[in-house]
Design a binder for these strands. Structure first.
Lengths: 133, 133
DNA sequence: CATACTGCACTAGCTATCTAATGCAGAAAG
DNA sequence: CTTTCTGCATTAGATAGCTAGTGCAGTATG
């Protein structure tokens, strides 16, 4: 399932990238409430990171109430996890847009130019929706 | 001029936030080619960070060719600095939009929903353009 | 019971970043 | 020349994050 969405070069800590990635997957319905997520070691191998880093990501998601962990069994999507993840996804998309627009305004880009850059990005990303698994 | 655009809590290193901030300012024409930027110590005090951190930001901008530093005199916007900064600003805005849209698509948000979230952000940020200096 | 999975705890070492403090060298102004 | 700005170099300590390795406790399966 995971497709190297982790960028070690990024400034964002890997464990937070994993949280973000799994949250999207849960929001998208890849993992449904009650279902188990990949085990610590399995996901670590898949993403080519240390198990401790995945552990830290799962800790964070547990803390946020998205998942519930059962020792010796696995980690499961919480009942309200899906709805919560979807809400958080929209929230973070909105925040990201706001942040970028603010940056553009600071650089004195016109509203029209910002619109154009957004449309351009939408047209580039939009059509490319096939999964390459 | 600077107005606490630096977020110490962010995952992005402070020195890169400073680069980003100054690049926007140069792109916006706040600092024109040939003009001096604030001194190391002055900007450090203004942003409430360590002079070494500002130094590092200026190093980076020098490396990128946006500014040229003259020992004992100051740091000046390069001749091509403004045009270059403007280009980079558009580039990074586009990249940020693409990244966010990709994230939204991963979470299975519809194209329409993404558009709405963008429009909402534009309407919130757009009208707020007064400077509070 | 034994085996093989789970989550989880703990130690240690490494790197990047930020801070702090000190000081030197170049340039401008008196 | 002296003073006072500049940029810049250097050392040291703190913290966050990642990796590596080891091992323990809980659970399921046979």
């Amino acid at each position: 399932m995971a497709r190297q969405r982790i960028e070690p070069e990024s400034h964002v800590p890997i464990y937070l990238q994993i949280v973000e990635y799994l949250r999207s997957a849960i929001a998208a319905g890849v993992f449904r409430p009650g279902e188990a997520l990949p085990s610590l070691r399995a996901l670590a191998i898949e993403l080519k990171v240390n198990p401790n880093t995945v552990q830290r990501a799962y800790d964070e998601m547990d803390r946020q109430g998205i998942v519930r962990s059962r020792r010796g069994v696995g980690i499961f999507v919480a009942e309200r996890g899906a709805r919560w993840a979807r809400g958080r996804a929209e929230e973070s998309v909105h925040a990201a847009f706001a942040h970028t627009i603010g940056m553009a305004k600071s650089a004195n880009l016109s509203t029209q130019r910002i619109q154009d850059l957004f449309d351009e990005a939408m047209n580039q990303i939009g059509p490319i929706m096939e999964q390459r698994s």
